[in-house]
Computed example of a mutant assay.
Amino acid sequence: MPLPRALLALTIGLCLAATATPAQEPLREEPGFLRVQIDGRVARLETLVVRPDRASGRLPLALITHGKAPSHTRMGDLRAVGYAAIARDLARRGWIAAVVVRRGFGQSDGPFSTEGAGCDLPNMVPRFESDAKELEAALKALTERPDVAPDRIIALGESAGGAAVMALAQRKPPGLKAVINVAGGLDLSDCVEKGRDALVATVRHWPWKDTVPQLWVYAGNDELFPPFLVDRMRGAALDRGGDVRLIALPEVKPRGHAALQNGRARFVWLREMDTSLRAWNLPTHSPGRPKTEFDRIGLEGRASVFENYFSAPGEKAMAVSRTGKSFTYRYGEKDLEAARRNALSDCGKKAEDCRLAFENDQAVDAP
């Protein structure tokens, strides 16, 4: 009994893929702890370092830090590995990416800083200053690694971590070149309007002069930091001489505040991050590579769609059909095997000679 066309195409694609040169994920992951000094005390901070495995010499450093959970119980549940996908996306761009868990969260030493930022005294400056001190101490420890370039550093933070990296920039640590703030701020749920005013006042309080450029990413439906609040914050920064580029994402479902981890949102803001990294003369994907690969494989049309693959979040894979001169890719999958399977399946609905061309950013199929 003949196989259905779609199943036949998938079977052929899987068989052909098996003959291609397998791509090995060229990353090395190092879970562990940093020993840092903060205000004269030694603390251990939970850390996950992800780096290109085959790169030599000193590599640029990307520090990544998290937001604040709504309860102390959930703060203890946080783990550095929860940010592994973001770290891998940066490591694939040539960075040593270090996820740093701040004091009082996850397996890091405590206590959590309770300075300021309460409804009775909604002053966020001391809270963000405390967080920034921790990140500065982490940078000092990380730049002692022999594989880190201490003069090429970026810091990326989510939610309260986004505010922390903004505060870090005000301290002007050596080597910091730029900051990426994704949905950054601090929410005072018991006094929302007071908290929003305090957040704007904090941004206005910072000096901003001669600080590094910043990329801000916020969703239009962020339930904690809506567009009118972000506009007030950015206006306060620009009025003080800040260099802030804002990416206003469309609606992110199911939660606008989850723009960092959301796969569809990452598909957009990672491309914008690449644009900013190039403007800052910092490493990222080569802008010429997509055209080179497009021509090498012998594809036609949709070159701009092909370009998007290289900025797309992992885990991802691309399948191509030479007879159809077409391609299909999947990104943001739970693992590489799922990305392979789904890319081949989608391609197999249109052609019978589908085979894998890329697994994440590695070419696996020579023409």
Rank of each mutant, 00 (worst) to 15 (best):
T65M: 09
G185P: 02
P313A: 14
G118L: 06
R245N: 06
A183I: 06
K209L: 11
L277Y: 01
V182R: 03
A317D: 07
W216M: 10
N262A: 08
T323P: 00
W95M: 02
G241T: 06
E134G: 10
M75Q: 13
E129C: 08
D151E: 14
F128C: 08
R266H: 08
I153P: 01
L282T: 02
L7Y: 03
P227K: 04
S276R: 13
G116L: 10
G67T: 10
L249N: 03
P4N: 08
G82E: 14
D53F: 11
W206E: 15
R88E: 13
A132C: 13
G242D: 08
R79S: 10
G256K: 01
D187M: 14
L168F: 05
A198W: 00
A259T: 13
A183H: 03
V165R: 05
N262I: 01
R93W: 10
T19L: 12
V179Q: 04
D361L: 15
G161R: 03
L168W: 02
L3T: 13
E144L: 13
A23V: 13
A265W: 00
V101Y: 02
D187P: 00
A155N: 04
E46V: 02
R152C: 12
A138V: 12
G110Q: 04
T47D: 00
R5Y: 05
T47G: 01
V217E: 06
V81F: 06
P2G: 05
F228Q: 13
D53R: 14
F105C: 11
R196P: 02
L14P: 00
E158V: 11
T275Q: 12
V320A: 00
I153H: 00
W95I: 05
Y83C: 03
L186P: 00
A55P: 08
P213F: 05
G118W: 09
C191I: 03
T323H: 14
K350V: 11
V49Q: 05
S286I: 04
A141Y: 06
C347G: 00
G298H: 09
D190F: 01
K68Y: 04
I38N: 05
A343F: 02
N262C: 06
L16I: 09
D346A: 13
I12P: 00
G288H: 13
G220V: 07
R44A: 08
K291N: 10
G256Q: 06
D147G: 09
E29V: 10
D353K: 01
Y309W: 12
K140E: 14
A366Q: 14
